[in-house]
Computed example of a mutant assay.
Amino acid sequence: MSLVTVMFYLMAIIALGSALYVAASKNLVRSVFMFFVTLFALAGLYVLCLADFVAVTQVVVYVGGILVLILFAFMLSGRESLAGLQQSKNRLFAVQNLPAFLLVTLFFVVLVNIVIMAGVDNLPWLKQAEKMHNVIQPADVTINNLGVNLMTTYLLPFEAISILLLMALVGAAHLARKEEAL
């Protein structure tokens, strides 16, 4: 196994493990910090996929922006509301969670089936790109192509993501504001 393969598996295990901890943890502050680890592991996976600009954007936007907003929302929210959330008696493996587990299992089976049926090693457009030597090398500069594509072909999804980030900012500000006593 090469070093790149080992690094990929290490980053994937860190990302999956920390994401599972985020989903299963009862402590909200620990979940936020493990989300921090998850986002950095995803940035490492982007670097291994030769998407260095996307990795830097991941760190700047999500770790530097969204995660800090979530931390501020927790710090500025009242102690009573956080204590009420942490005192809830919801267990991970309970009868009331059975439909969610069944749905997740079904989704996972369908996803694995799609990946197996797709045959990603035998896709015609990948074979054509390899035959024409139209592949990204580690020394290639992809930022110019990314900038042109973001402002032409992918302008609508780019603007949709900016609206999503604005909604996250407004949501964090709403969570951080104090409620007036009646």
Rank of each mutant, 00 (worst) to 15 (best):
M1I: 10
M1R: 03
V4D: 12
F8E: 10
F8C: 08
Y9L: 14
M11T: 05
A12G: 09
I13C: 07
I14Y: 00
A15Q: 03
A15K: 03
S18F: 11
A19P: 00
L20V: 13
Y21R: 06
V22D: 04
V22M: 05
A23W: 08
A23T: 07
A23N: 07
A24W: 10
A24L: 15
K26P: 00
L28S: 07
V29Q: 10
V32S: 11
V32L: 14
V32G: 04
F33L: 11
F35Q: 14
F35C: 07
F35S: 09
F35V: 00
V37F: 11
L39H: 03
L39K: 03
L39E: 12
F40Y: 11
A43W: 05
G44I: 01
C49Q: 09
L50K: 10
D52K: 01
V54H: 02
V54L: 05
A55R: 05
Q58N: 13
Q58T: 02
Q58M: 05
Q58E: 14
Y62W: 13
V63F: 02
G64Q: 05
I66T: 13
L69G: 07
I70P: 00
L71C: 09
F72T: 04
A73P: 04
A73K: 08
M75F: 15
S77Q: 14
E80L: 08
A83T: 11
G84K: 14
Q86W: 02
N90E: 12
L92C: 03
A94S: 15
V95D: 05
V95Q: 06
Q96W: 03
N97E: 10
L98I: 13
L98C: 02
F101L: 06
F101K: 03
L102E: 06
T105M: 06
L106K: 01
F108K: 01
V109Y: 08
V109M: 12
V109A: 14
V110K: 03
L111I: 04
I114R: 12
I114Q: 12
I114M: 12
V115K: 04
I116H: 09
M117P: 02
G119I: 08
V120T: 14
V120P: 07
V120M: 13
N122Q: 11
N122T: 14
W125D: 10
L126I: 09
Q128I: 06
Q128A: 15
A129L: 06
E130Y: 07
V135F: 03
V135W: 04
I136S: 03
I136D: 04
Q137T: 07
Q137G: 02
A139V: 04
V141L: 10
V141K: 06
T142V: 10
I143P: 01
N145S: 14
L146N: 02
L146D: 04
V148T: 13
V148E: 12
N149W: 05
T152H: 07
T153S: 10
T153A: 09
Y154R: 12
L155Q: 06
A160P: 01
I161F: 11
I161T: 10
L164E: 09
M167K: 03
G171A: 15
H174G: 04
K178N: 09
E179P: 01
E180W: 05
A181G: 01
A181Q: 15
A181M: 13
A181V: 15
L182R: 13
